[in-house]
Structures are given as structure tokens and as C-alpha cells.
């Protein structure tokens, strides 16, 4: 675990260095299971050219939050979507990995829906965060944003040979526990993957981290290890999560885990400070450097995805 953490820290340092070079953003290239950072520029354009398709991940828009360090989370979501729209190639779809809203209020869902219509993309796929299921176990969320494949809300789809799986790990949480997938969803996942060949690239997304990133702050999922036993036989697995409002990554065999930035506000690095609340004391004008979007390109014939994280400018 210490080694993993060191890797994460050195990756973060590298990332911060890149931000100093470029400011606008960083291109993450995955080569043989290891991420390489590179500033956005000619390389990014070249990478985009040989991609067969791309999609964008956004996360943790927290519509309804209105405190330091971000009094206007609608505006930062709008800026994030403008950045998506400014990409040279239009993404095939967007993934929103949860915490659309801050308090699951109907008017917050209304605002989110309205803003998402500004994204120039044909589809948006959603999974709920724990902030989206308060008081009704997600009934309102699923009514508005659910895929309606399974009663539990989880789903999968295929896109250009890549199998995508949206998991729900923010419901039926137990006292003292972390995120939870539950026996029924795990059984479905096992069945969903059973007929796929090991060469099929997988992208699995859920709100809370699907690995024990920092359990004492609730950053993990109790039964994620069971899910990983179903994923391990595949040659390329990318796991995309939100929840922690910062980029962390980890490589475990053929499985690479990523967490995304928020479009609303940053949270501290694991264990830094008393708790995982919003980072309030940002230097003036620095907020946008902590927010951002993720652009993922699929390169045909390669077993890897090129992952780019961009800060708001």
C-alpha cells in the first residue's frame, strides 16, 4: 500500500509539473499499463488522429452547493461543458460519474438537466453519487437519468468493440462501511461479463472508488474485491470513478483505476487535514486549476486507452 501511495504521489508531482509547463491541461497516455504525462500540444493532436472514438468523463458537479471555494457550481459545470465542446474531435458520449446534485433536490436535478443540454454530444450516461440518492434511495435520480436495464439501476452497453459497465455503489450502505455493490449486482456483473472474450476492452464506471483508496475517509467500496475477480481475466480494464474530487490512479495487473476531478470544488489529498470536506482556502483565482474534465480516446488495435485530464482554463 505504501508503494502504491508513493506511486500516486510521484504521478501527482509529475502532473503538477506538467501543469506548470502548460497550464491548460495534461495528456495522460497509458502505455503498457503505465501512465505517462505529457503537456497538451502537438502530441495530443497526433493522439487524437489515430483514435477510433473518444468519450469524456465529468464528475461531481454538486449542483446546489454554494459555499467557499465555489459560489457558482452551475457556472463551473458550464465552463467544463464548453471545454468539452471545444475539443477538436467530438466525443461520442459523456459519462457523468455521480454527485450530479448536492442534496438530491428536484430543482437541483432540473438545473443539472438544463446545463447538460449545452454539451454537444449525442448521449450522456449517468451513475448516481451518494448525494443523488438522499431520502428516496435514488428514485428521482433513476426516474430522470436511469438506463432502465435492471431494476437495481446498473447497466452495460457496447460501443465500437469496447464493453462499458455502469455500476451503483452508493445504495444500501451499512453503518461503519464503505460503498457497496451488493450480492444481486455482483451476480449480474458476473453474468454480464461471462460471454465476453478476454480480448474485449472493458470500461467500468461507478461513483465511489472501486479500490480501497482511503477507507478511513470512506474512499472505497466494501465488496469491490469480488468485482475485481470477474474483471481480472480481461486484457484491458479501465475503472473510472469520481467521489474524491481529485485525480488518483493505480495499476493492478491489467486493471487501471482512475478517479476524476470535480467540476465543482476540490477535496484534500488522502489524509491531509481533518476530513474530506471541500478545500476552502484556495488562493484567489486558483479554483479552475482544481476542476476539470477527462477525455478518453480508444485507439483501434491497441489494448490501451489514451486518457487525458484537463483543468478548466
Amino acid at each position: 500500500m505504501q508503494n502504491e501511495h508513493d506511486n500516486e504521489i510521484s504521478g501527482r508531482r509529475q502532473f503538477l509539473k506538467c501543469m506548470a509547463w502548460a497550464g491548460a491541461g495534461t495528456l495522460w497516455l497509458m502505455k503498457g499499463g503505465v501512465l505517462h504525462a505529457q503537456s497538451l500540444g502537438d502530441g495530443a493532436v497526433a493522439s487524437a488522429k489515430d483514435a477510433s472514438f473518444s468519450f469524456v468523463q465529468i464528475s461531481d458537479s454538486h449542483i446546489g452547493f454554494h459555499k467557499a471555494p465555489n459560489m457558482d457550481v452551475a457556472e463551473t459545470l458550464r465552463a467544463s461543458l464548453a471545454q468539452v465542446n471545444a475539443q477538436s474531435t467530438r466525443p461520442d458520449f459523456l459519462l457523468h460519474t455521480g454527485d450530479l446534485t448536492h442534496l438530491s433536490k428536484p430543482e437541483e436535478f432540473d438545473t443539472l438537466s438544463g446545463l447538460m443540454r449545452e454539451a454537444r454530444t449525442s448521449r450522456v450516461f449517468y451513475v448516481p453519487g451518494e448525494h443523488d440518492v438522499i431520502g428516496d434511495n435514488g428514485a428521482e435520480f433513476f426516474r430522470r437519468f436511469g438506463e432502465r436495464q435492471q431494476a437495481g439501476g446498473w447497466y452495460s452497453f457496447d460501443h465500437h468493440g469496447v464493453h462499458f459497465v455502469g455500476l451503483i455503489n452508493v445504495l444500501n450502505l451499512k453503518a461503519g462501511g464503505l460503498g457497496s455493490l451488493g450480492a444481486e449486482q455482483l451476480a449480474w456483473l458476473k453474468k454480464d461479463l461471462a460471454s465476453l472474450s478476454a480480448e474485449t476492452p472493458l470500461v467500468v464506471f461507478a461513483h465511489m472508488p472501486l479500490w480501497p483508496l482511503y477507507p478511513s475517509w470512506g474512499w472505497g467500496t466494501d465488496d469491490s474485491a469480488e468485482a475485481m475477480t470477474y474483471l481480472r481475466r480481461f486484457g484491458s480494464v479501465s475503472v473510472l470513478n469520481g467521489h474524491i474530487h481529485q485525480i488518483q490512479q493505480k495499476v493492478e495487473g491489467n486493471i487501471t483505476f482512475y478517479t476524476a476531478r470535480s467540476t465543482a470544488y476540490p477535496q484534500p489529498a488522502p489524509g491531509v487535514g481533518p476530513g474530506p470536506g471541500p478545500m476552502k482556502d484556495l488562493p484567489p483565482g486558483a479554483l479552475h486549476h482544481y476542476l476539470g474534465i477527462r477525455d478518453v480516446r480508444h485507439v483501434q488495435g491497441k489494448q490501451v486507452l489514451a486518457v487525458t485530464d484537463e483543468v478548466l482554463t
Partner: peptide, 12 residues
């Protein structure tokens, strides 16, 4: 009476 936070269940 044991209780927890339903959205941050590590809080007990």
C-alpha cells in the same frame, strides 16, 4: 441506539 450517516457510512 447505534446510528450512522447514510451518505458517509464510516461516520458512526
Amino acid at each position: 441506539y447505534a446510528y450512522f450517516c447514510s451518505i458517509h457510512p464510516m461516520m458512526v
